[in-house]
Simulated assay, not measured.
Amino acid sequence: MKLLVTTPMSVILDRDDVTYIRAEDETGAFGILPGHADFLTVLSVSVVVWRNGTDTDHFIAVRGGIMTVRDGDTVEIATRDAVGDVSLDRLDVSILKRFREEDEAEERSRTSTTRMHLAAIRQVQHYLTANRGPIGPGALHPGGDAE
């Protein structure tokens, strides 16, 4: 199988001799073998394990991402950040911890930005409705004159 792992800035891995892939999404861990059915899934912050033709395991920590399987022989992972290594010991838990902390910080930032947008919309709405009286025949305008 072909395995392609990319970030917005680089190609992390491009191999044609992959015999097995293990990844993780919200539902848990799963494996991919040659001939797997086509699908698309959203990966969690996790370690992707892949095995080459010599049955050697390799590891890539991914900061979430999208995994697609096409034609049973092409697996592509698009992720925001990834770090690969041949040793799980060298691919330290701190990398996964850093990825999770960055995701949490981004979520807090999105929440804060959304709150600011909502506050601005409320202020505009308050301003627009503050000088508006009833609309219709006989209604008083803000200056007190009837229509």
Rank of each mutant, 00 (worst) to 15 (best):
T111L: 14
E76I: 15
D103S: 09
D16V: 02
R122C: 01
L13E: 02
G143R: 13
E101R: 13
H36C: 02
D71Y: 15
L128W: 11
I60C: 15
V5C: 07
P137N: 08
E104R: 07
A146F: 04
M67S: 12
L128Y: 10
P142W: 11
P142F: 13
E26L: 04
D71L: 03
V47D: 14
L91W: 10
E76N: 10
R110C: 11
V18Y: 03
T79F: 14
R15S: 02
R70C: 15
T7E: 09
V45Y: 13
V86R: 07
I95W: 14
T56I: 10
V124F: 02
G31C: 03
G143A: 03
D25K: 11
V42F: 11
I32R: 14
I60G: 02
H126T: 01
R63W: 11
D81N: 07
R80A: 05
R98Q: 09
G31D: 04
G65S: 07
T113E: 13
F30N: 01
A61K: 04
P134K: 13
H141N: 13
A23I: 03
A130W: 15
K2N: 01
E107F: 07
A139G: 01
G28F: 09
L128D: 08
T129Q: 07
A130Q: 11
G143S: 12
P137A: 03
V5K: 12
H36Y: 03
K97S: 05
R110S: 14
V83G: 05
D14Q: 09
A78M: 12
D57K: 15
S109Y: 03
A130R: 11
I77N: 04
V49H: 10
R100V: 10
G31S: 05
P34W: 00
V11N: 12
T68S: 14
R122K: 12
A61G: 03
T56Q: 15
R63A: 14
T111G: 05
V5T: 08
A29Q: 13
I21K: 04
E102N: 08
D81H: 12
R70P: 05
D145L: 07
L128H: 02
S112V: 00
R110M: 04
F59P: 00
R100D: 09
D17H: 04
H141L: 09
A119P: 06
E76P: 09
R80P: 08
R115A: 03
E104T: 15
A120K: 04
L91V: 01
R90H: 01
T129C: 13
V42P: 09
D14N: 08
Y20T: 15
L88G: 00
G72N: 14
P34K: 04
G64I: 09
L96T: 00
V45F: 05
G53E: 09
E106Y: 02
I121C: 06
D103G: 13
E24A: 01
V49A: 01
D81P: 04
S46V: 02
T7W: 08
H117G: 07
D145F: 12
D103P: 09
R110P: 06
R132I: 02
Y127F: 12
Y20V: 14
K2Q: 01
L118P: 12
V49C: 06
F99M: 10
E26N: 09
D17F: 11
T41P: 09
D57N: 14
